[in-house]
Write a protein that binds this DNA or RNA. Structure first.
Lengths: 239, 239
DNA sequence: CAGGCAATTTGCAGCAACTGCAACTTAGAG
DNA sequence: CTCTAAGTTGCAGTTGCTGCAAATTGCCTG
């Protein structure tokens, strides 16, 4: 998994002289298409933007567009991020025991926008999500695709303290059910978090460039606030 | 809201003689289309079924089809159920305090398949959901549309014990956040519940879910089991 | 550096979902 | 019964998306 990166750190022996290797080119084009798509949608709205528009602005043919992205929505949301990082998974399983909830949330957030990603593109996408719930929906759907993987990790973490031989099938099945339930519930929480994150819906026609840095909490801030709220909510007496 | 029902219990003065009132006819056609769609999809799969097929089997034109349902998917999932029942909402707010979770789940379940609905159609749809995750997705998306309404109800219920004059804005806002978070999380739980419900869903071996051919549990059973699991999960010490 | 293999790109033809419009049919009120 | 409005239909057109085969391009080997 994550073949892109694997190839990336094996540059051709000719040092950095060869500027445009096949792989780089693909990546560049992909990014160019994403940018075109996002900017066009921000300008005209999702329905008014045709695939042909995106193509001509990106300098590729329509057919090539669909070689890069399966659907129009996919192009706007961006290239599919790889599956869960192996190292991250290990960390998660072995992490100190009294922080399960935030850890799960962190794990899930890693599926969405990545760390070193283009800042402008990122916030633009957030704005689009606010404007077009359908696309937000698509993003969430993408996350649900890894539900089973996360469930497995949660399952392992839940069971790490148990003695191996002291348990029987029903207990394991029960714990797996717990993991599954917990994962789905946390996915809902992620949605909540994402919604809190999306900037103001109202958008004056004036300055297109983001000038006010008023409400743009980092992932970590947003996360810790959510966890705090979650903890206090779970402690409601008559729940 | 729920205008259908409101009109239904106001039959024309001519008793039951007039068999096909305008409204009834619409309802009948709608149901016929749904049935055609569901059976065809079960037989050939979603992609292989064209709207034209559904139309000819239902005896309507394609144009009329799109007058009844916005999209092909919508026809398969079925007519949009009305918004939350007013009486139900009141009940929810006033219900005894120590059963919030199951009550929320019940409220949400009411959005999906209705009580007095066609049994065959219902189970067929479940099968389709198992076969085509995209449609399940659509159904869930439909549920998320009432998120804000449910949030409001939860908010009211959370605050019903508080003295009116003893609270200030921050407290109210905080409670609203709680309601929002809770609603989203519960929506995730509903998804979990739905998955347990669907027969033969291809999932990684060992995952919780029915693989046997036993009859599907009723909504109430499934719900109480889920709540039980949820409660025991929330009481995990190092959560 | 030439030649060739394989991956990518592209044009083209075509299908299916969906929409607006205008004409037509029908149900139900007066 | 008649008239009006609601519901239905055909038609033409747009758009997303796919398969296929030809053209192009990057890259490796001799």
């Amino acid at each position: 998994m994550n073949q892109d990166e694997a190839l990336a750190d094996t540059p051709p022996p000719g040092a950095t002289v060869r500027a445009q290797t096949r792989h780089d080119k693909h990546h560049a084009t992909s990014l160019r298409v994403e940018r075109s798509a996002v900017s066009l949608v921000l300008e005209h709205g999702f329905d008014s933007v045709t695939v042909d528009m995106i193509c001509s602005q990106s300098g590729i043919s329509q057919r090539t567009f669909f070689n890069y992205f399966k659907t129009k929505k996919a192009a706007i949301i961006g290239a599919e991020p790889p599956t869960i990082d192996e190292g991250r998974a290990r960390e998660f399983i072995a992490a100190p025991g009294d922080d399960l909830l935030p850890d799960v949330l962190t794990l899930m957030s890693a599926i969405g926008p990545r760390e070193g990603m283009d800042e402008q593109l990122f916030t633009d996408r957030l704005r689009i999500f606010g404007l077009h719930p359908e696309l937000m929906q698509e993003q969430m759907e993408r996350m649900t695709r890894v539900t089973s993987e996360i469930t497995e990790l949660v399952y392992l973490r839940l069971g790490r303290g148990a003695t191996v031989d002291g348990e029987n099938d029903p207990e394991l099945a029960f714990r797996h059910g717990q993991a599954e339930l917990l994962t789905h519930a946390m996915l809902g929480v992620v949605r909540f978090m994402a919604l809190q994150w999306i900037p103001d819906f109202e958008r004056p026609a004036g300055a297109a460039g983001r000038t006010d840095r008023a409400a743009a909490p980092t992932l970590a801030e947003s996360l810790s606030r959510t966890v705090e709220l979650l903890r206090r909510t779970l402690s409601i007496p008559g729940l």
